[in-house]
């Protein structure tokens, strides 16, 4: 089963929605820098912000299957079970080896 649409139809149908999402991302990065303790996002130590910046690079690399590769980029690539669950939630970016869990982890159903 392939896409029944032409590229022009896909763009017509979805461009404005994704233009808005790109704008949201830009405003989010601006908001982090404008925060009371804000600093340039390019030097952020927060692994979630770093994961987003790496994702932007991936989007522009010209290779296919961006969604799969993006999810892989954000995934824990270790293979062994961990000793004990440190929390119930997840943060959305691959943890750094040995790092303490982030306090901002969302509790998800």
């Amino acid at each position: 089963m392939s896409s029944p649409q032409t590229a022009a139809q896909v763009i017509d149908q979805y461009f404005l929605e994704h233009r808005a999402k790109a704008l949201d991302l830009a405003a989010f990065l601006d908001r982090i820098e404008r925060a009371s303790d804000g600093a340039p996002v390019a030097g952020s130590h927060d692994i979630r912000v770093r994961a987003l910046l790496r994702a932007i690079d991936l989007l522009r690399d010209g290779k296919p299957e961006r969604a799969r590769r993006l999810l892989e980029l954000w995934s824990d690539q270790t293979t062994e079970p961990i000793a004990k669950a440190p929390m119930k939630g997840a943060i959305g970016a691959a943890p750094l080896p040995g790092a303490a869990p982030l306090s901002g982890a969302a509790s998800l159903p």
Partner: peptide, 13 residues
């Protein structure tokens, strides 16, 4: 299967 960053590893296990 697990959420977010834990999904890929968890799915395999």
């Amino acid at each position: 299967t697990p959420h977010l960053e834990d999904k890929l590893k968890g799915t395999r296990l």
